[in-house]
């Protein structure tokens, strides 16, 4: 923590963006796994994948790296935000109206929503899958008995309130990514007159695609299962 505090502003931003991009790759992997729930009809593939992720020793180690990534991104984000508030103790009385990257204004707000979602998500799935809280059914695929993660998901997505909450949270993730992806490139110094417009567009497109992908799953499950 004190190490993070003593980093210069630019170093903090570089770490922030590296962690952000790292978490973004995790989102891609996670999404590709989730999509198997609606692509393979009996959702066995999803359970198998979840089982692989839950038992593979490399993944088991790597999940701590991922966890650390989250922690660094969150703590740095908080430090940055608090310092930024401190840099202007007396706010403007008239609302500032300069043109700027729209969601950049709300990164801390979208982050808080995502953080709350993350905790609930953790309680709903990760800790349950680990057998630490709640109960989870079992299935046997090709002679291997494993947790019925798909069943857990289907149960939760049967609840319309949960679906709505999930979709809203994921929209906020989309907002966060819309600014976050291109911003990470800028913080890493990757700005070029030719490529930056592409990066900005690709970042926005990815944010939309990822959000749509995640949002599609509960909708399909809710309306078809």
């Amino acid at each position: 923590m004190s190490n993070l505090l003593s980093l210069s502003s630019v170093a903090k931003k570089i770490w922030m963006s590296l962690m952000g991009l790292f978490l973004f790759t995790f989102l891609l992997v996670h999404l590709s796994l989730n999509l198997t729930m609606i692509t393979s009809p009996d959702s066995g593939l999803f359970n198998e994948a979840a089982h692989f992720m839950g038992t593979n020793p490399f993944i088991q180690v790597f999940q701590w790296v991922l966890f650390a990534g989250f922690i660094v991104h969150i703590i740095l984000g908080l430090i940055l935000q608090v310092q930024n508030w401190m840099a202007r103790p007396n706010a403007y009385k008239k609302k500032a109206s300069s043109e700027q990257s729209f969601f950049s204004k709300y990164m801390i707000h979208t982050a808080v929503v995502i953080f709350v979602f993350l905790i609930i998500h953790f309680l709903n799935f990760f800790l349950v899958a680990k057998g630490l809280i709640g109960e989870i059914g079992e299935v046997t695929i090709d002679g291997v008995t494993m947790e019925d993660m798909a069943g857990l998901v289907f149960d939760l997505f049967a609840n319309p309130a949960y679906v709505v909450f999930y979709i809203i949270a994921l929209l906020f993730l989309g907002f966060h990514l819309d600014h976050g992806i291109q911003s990470a490139f800028q913080s890493l110094g990757l700005n070029h007159p030719k490529y930056t417009p592409c990066i900005k567009n690709a970042g926005r497109l990815l944010a939309i695609v990822i959000t749509l992908g995640y949002v599609l799953i509960p909708l399909v499950i809710y309306f078809t299962k």
């Binding site: 930024n84 700027q100 911003s183 070029h192």
Partner: peptide, 23 residues
Amino acid sequence: GNCTNTYACEAECPKEISVANIA
């Protein structure tokens, strides 16, 4: 404060200095 790449600086700079310099 820290830069969060809002680009408001570039939008308001009277000399139109680019945020490419920040990168």
